[in-house]
């Protein structure tokens, strides 16, 4: 498999390779080789099942942007205008905020969303194998008006774009 990207990719697929079941320690070391901070979430079944042990729990427990990025990617992000980040200016309801992230950057391996005003800043992170288009839509919750940061890991580097989303109460109370 011609590997154009700087990071080592383990191409999964029933024909090519046998799933590798990783013990804790081995998992950690391999994680460093893979898209840094991420571990391939495979389990030993025909169709890969969601594997809880792959969950970057530490990253989801961080309260600040830098700590979350360090725990997830252990690299620093540089702002980029190559990322299209759709998020409302004013959220109609903080509980359901549609966000879409897409980019033209080549070799995207991961996309993540951080809400700086939330108790834990990391809201969601996605690991994109080869062939998956670099565009993700989802709906997140925002505790209050806050900066929302979209992160894209491409070609072994980390890029970011930030957008402020206003969250206000509605209605006339009781």
């Amino acid at each position: 498999m011609q590997n154009t990207k700087t990071t080592v990719r383990i191409k999964s697929g029933p024909a090519l390779t046998r799933r590798i079941t990783l013990s804790g320690a081995a998992a950690a070391t391999l994680a460093a080789l893979l898209a840094p901070g991420f571990k391939a979430a495979h389990a030993d079944t025909a169709a890969p099942m969601a594997d809880a042990s792959a969950y970057p729990a530490k990253a989801f427990a961080q309260k600040s942007k830098d700590e979350a990025i360090a725990a997830l990617f252990n690299m620093t992000a540089t702002a980029s205008d190559q990322i299209t980040f759709d998020a409302p200016d004013i959220a109609e309801n903080g509980a359901v905020v549609p966000v879409s992230i897409s980019t033209t950057l080549p070799g995207v391996t991961a996309i993540a969303v951080l809400a700086l005003g939330n108790p834990f800043t990391l809201a969601a992170a996605y690991q994109l194998p080869d062939g998956t288009n670099a565009a993700i839509s989802s709906r997140i919750k925002l505790a209050k008006t806050t900066d929302v940061v979209a992160l894209v890991q491409a070609g072994g580097k980390l890029y970011s774009v930030t957008k402020n989303v206003k969250v206000t109460l509605g209605g006339c109370g009781g």
């Binding site: 999964s12 697929g13 029933p14 391939a40 979430a41 495979h42 025909a46 169709a47 890969p48 099942m49 969601a50 594997d51 809880a52 792959a54 969950y55 970057p56 729990a57 989801f60 509980a95 359901v96 905020v97 879409s100 809400a115 939330n118 834990f120 990391l122 809201a123 969601a124 992170a125 996605y126 690991q127 994109l128 194998p129 062939g131 998956t132 288009n133 565009a135 993700i136 839509s137 989802s138 709906r139 997140i140 919750k141 925002l142």
Partner: peptide, 29 residues
């Protein structure tokens, strides 16, 4: 916490979610 999407046995997307993902979560890719 973890969602795995696979096409004919090989992973096409892995999602890691925290408590800030909306109720009845939606994903499009």
């Amino acid at each position: 916490q973890v969602v795995e999407f696979a096409h004919s046995g090989s992973v096409v997307l892995t999602a890691f979610w925290g408590g800030a993902v909306s109720k009845d979560p939606f994903t499009k890719f």
